[in-house]
């Protein structure tokens, strides 16, 4: 099975700088975001969509089952648009599904935060109950970032990316609102919910450090003018996070030491399990149409 190499994607992106097809083809001289940048955004969405969908049928209350399904559906939808854009620009026989199903874990460019299971710090093959506080806290930390990222990308000169950003921004605002609402309820709810939310925050917060050190793809996107410099979003992100944590009576943890590197393709033990499950059936029938 021919997995699509990121280096190949990178090379092709240069050839594909004047993309063909798509609803809004770029005008001559306009910028297309580097393929690896699109893949970083798409991988984030597909991995978190996959994780959140694990709650389907197991939510704490029926309304939340439906709400989390919505969140998941939004992420899968964003992933599809981004992979489709990347596939169009790569040309040949590349499709959204080739990019999602036939790349290996080391080729995925998502934040490590997003691939973690819904529980506290445990090794890859540990089995644990899902914890809704972990799910909500992650959706909050990431949702706060993505509202800022999409706000910036909505103004990207890459018109195709800007269109995806505009659509995704509306969704991200809802995701942030939903997660922040619950985080405040947990923090300022019962002793148990407070303790669970604080534990989730203590577990997950260090992973957000990965947001702030740009990857090669992000730097290339900034250089091309199509991307956003994540460092410029940090103060605004801190503002959103600190305000919500104060309202939730939760304590922002100190962060030091190892910074995760998922967006560079160096992941935790958890991603290969997630992809193994997600990709298994598609890979058992290469070339099949579904």
């Amino acid at each position: 099975m021919s997995a699509i190499q990121p280096s190949v994607a990178q090379d092709r992106s240069k050839q594909a700088s004047a993309p063909v097809g798509g609803s809004a083809p770029n005008a001559v001289g306009s910028v297309g975001a580097p393929i690896d940048y699109l893949l970083h955004l798409a991988d984030n969405a597909v991995v978190l969509g996959q994780r959140n969908a694990e709650w389907c049928g197991h939510g704490p209350i029926l309304e939340e089952d439906i709400a989390m399904g919505n969140v998941s559906l939004d992420y899968i939808g964003q992933a599809r648009l981004l992979y489709q854009l990347a596939a169009t620009r790569l040309g040949g026989d590349v499709t959204e599904d080739k990019l999602a199903y036939f790349r290996d874990d080391t080729q995925f460019r998502n934040y490590t935060l997003l691939e973690l299971p819904h529980n506290g710090p445990l090794v890859g093959y540990a089995v644990s109950n899902r914890d809704y506080a972990t799910t909500i806290t992650r959706n909050f930390l990431y949702g706060a970032l993505m509202v800022l990222v999409w706000e910036a990308l909505e103004k990207s000169p890459d018109a195709d990316l800007a269109a995806i950003a505009a659509k995704s921004l509306k969704e991200a605002r809802y995701h942030l609102h939903h997660a922040a609402d619950w985080l405040v309820r947990f923090g300022d709810g019962t002793d148990e919910s407070h303790q669970r939310a604080q534990a989730a925050l203590d577990h997950l917060f260090a992973y957000t450090e990965e947001f702030w050190t740009p990857s090669a793809a992000e730097e290339a996107a900034v250089a091309s003018g199509a991307g956003v410099d994540v460092r410029s979003l940090r103060a605004a992100w801190d503002g959103i996070v600190n305000d919500t944590l104060t309202e939730a009576t939760l304590v922002r943890p100190e962060v030091r030491g190892y910074v995760t590197e998922g967006k560079h393709g160096r992941h935790s033990e958890h991603l290969s399990y997630l992809l193994g499950e997600m990709q298994g059936l598609a890979r058992a029938h290469p070339g099949a149409t579904w």
């Binding site: 197991h58 939510g59 704490p60 209350i61 939340e64 109950n129 899902r130 809704y132 405040v184 309820r185 947990f186 300022d188 709810g189 019962t190 148990e192 919910s193 669970r196």
Partner: peptide, 13 residues
Amino acid sequence: NDGQWVRDAALAY
């Protein structure tokens, strides 16, 4: 049962 604490938190809040 696993969701009991979530519902309790919402009520308490």
